[in-house]
């Protein structure tokens, strides 16, 4: 396993998947036309990193905007982490959901995902 990065474009976020400390960082507007293709390597990396049995995985999501097809892909990512937690109770999984002050829409989306998953969500004003 090695680190994996995707540079930010006009309509897609910067992605940095870091092996050390096992961090998944996604930052920026997320409006890919084909969300499944965009998230595929992120989901694959996450699936593979689980075989290293990391004691902690941190997911940092700073998405000022994302389209509805990305919602499904984000949910898939949450499920991967949820499954990992279910298999290894001792593992710590943290989701940091960032929103800009006053951005009610993204704050609400964070709350929605928090309700939809069993993961520990920190909704943080950035």
């Amino acid at each position: 396993m090695s680190d994996f990065k995707i540079e930010q474009t006009k309509l897609t976020p910067r992605v940095a998947l870091l092996k050390d400390g096992c961090e998944i960082n996604i930052k920026g507007e997320c409006l890919p036309e084909d969300a499944r293709a965009f998230f595929k390597p992120i989901l694959e990396w996450t699936e593979q990193i689980k075989s290293d049995s990391p004691p902690k995985i941190t997911l940092n999501l700073d998405l000022p905007y994302f389209n509805s097809s990305s919602s499904k892909q984000l949910m898939k990512l949450f499920y991967l982490l949820e499954d990992y937690k279910e298999e290894n109770e001792a593992v710590a999984i943290e989701v940091n959901w960032y929103y800009l002050e006053g951005d009610v829409l993204i704050f609400e989306k964070g709350e929605e995902f928090d309700e939809l998953t069993e993961l520990r969500f920190n909704i943080i004003k950035s």
Binding site: S68, M75, Y79, E115
Partner: peptide, 18 residues
């Protein structure tokens, strides 16, 4: 919420949440 939960587990289904 129901749809996003279900569809994320089932690759054959499209998002359907827009």
């Amino acid at each position: 919420k129901d749809r996003i939960r279900k569809n994320a587990r089932d690759e054959s289904k499209s998002g359907g949440v827009g």
